[in-house]
């Protein structure tokens, strides 16, 4: 596990190297010039391509990218006015955004909502796309099945980290919450363990990044264990009322409780009208 952490770090560190930017820009310009060069001139990105998949996948991913993503993110993922560059966001970001249906975005709202996946976005297509973007500039990779296995995490430890880092936006059970200007922290219930991990590692949209050196992969797995444990747990006290706290409780007290009691009081005191 530690090994993974360090290797991701080193990729991230190289990605953040000032020269990496220059290299990336040079690469983008070269591609724009008309050359259909697939092999990246940068050592680290080539490593990443190899690490995350076959060169075929990268090629397939490229064509998927051109077909479905390039209109906003630019032909070579360099970014446009509409959408940011994807160079360096890593395979994890692609997997998160596309597998959760957020990308391709439907329209320009304050935030891309979770929705059913695009038809073309099969698991294989997502992997290929991710491999392509990974090949462009490194970044966080998709976690292994073991890294996100809730059974291997400690939910009690994860709960403490979850309360320290996540609930201020996502609420105490991950029911979601409001942010500024129409943005919101989405509910965590539909998110798969892999997506939860990827969201922490990549910081999609307004969400901050929790990189592996500050919140270790084990700690992320503990949090996943807590989130999945609590969301699958029964509500022993009856309906959970959305698990968003006192707002729905108050609503139920008035709409159900007081209404029922007022009906009872009407029944007790009602008079039959005598026929006139």
């Amino acid at each position: 596990m530690i090994g993974t952490g360090i290797s991701v770090n080193s990729i991230t560190a190289r990605r953040r190297h000032p020269l990496a930017r220059v290299a990336v820009v040079a690469l983008a310009l070269g591609l724009l010039g008309g050359g259909y060069a697939l092999t990246a001139p940068n050592g680290s990105t080539a490593d990443a391509a190899i690490a995350s998949g076959k060169a075929d996948d990268v090629a397939q991913g490229k064509s998927l990218f051109v077909a479905h993503c390039a209109s906003c993110h630019g032909l070579n993922a360099e970014g446009t006015k509409k959408a940011p560059t994807l160079i360096g966001v890593g395979a994890a970001a692609v997997n998160f955004q596309v597998s959760s249906g957020r990308m391709p975005a439907a329209d320009a709202g304050p935030q891309a909502p979770r929705k059913p996946r695009a038809e073309w976005a099969t698991d294989q297509a997502v992997d290929q796309l991710a491999a392509y973007v990974q090949s462009l500039g490194g970044g966080p990779t998709v976690p292994s099945a073991e890294q996100v296995d809730p059974a291997k995490g400690d939910p009690a430890k994860g709960g403490e980290l979850f309360r320290a880092n996540c609930i201020q936006c996502h609420n105490f059970v991950g029911a979601g919450g409001a942010l500024t200007y129409g943005k919101y922290a989405p509910p965590l219930n539909p998110a798969t363990p892999t997506q939860i991990y990827e969201a922490m590692a990549t910081g999609p949209q307004a969400m901050p990044v929790f990189n592996d050196s500050t919140i270790t992969p084990e700690q992320k797995r503990d949090m996943i264990a807590y989130i999945t444990h609590v969301r699958s747990q029964v509500d022993p006290g009856g309906s959970g009322l959305g698990r968003i706290g006192p707002v729905t409780e108050g609503l139920v007290a008035w709409v159900v409780g007081l209404s029922l009691l007022i009906l009872a009081s009407i029944w007790i005191t009602a008079k039959k009208r005598r026929a006139a």
């Binding site: 403490e160 309360r163 609930i167 105490f172 509500d235 009856g238 959970g240 009322l241 706290g245 409780e249």
Partner: peptide, 22 residues
């Protein structure tokens, strides 16, 4: 109807807070 599920909130610390604290 479940009310005030304290086990979901966790213990108090002045350093943490949940969204939608009401």
């Amino acid at each position: 109807a479940q009310i005030n599920p304290i086990w979901l909130f966790g213990p108090y610390t002045p350093a943490d807070i949940s969204a939608g604290s009401q």
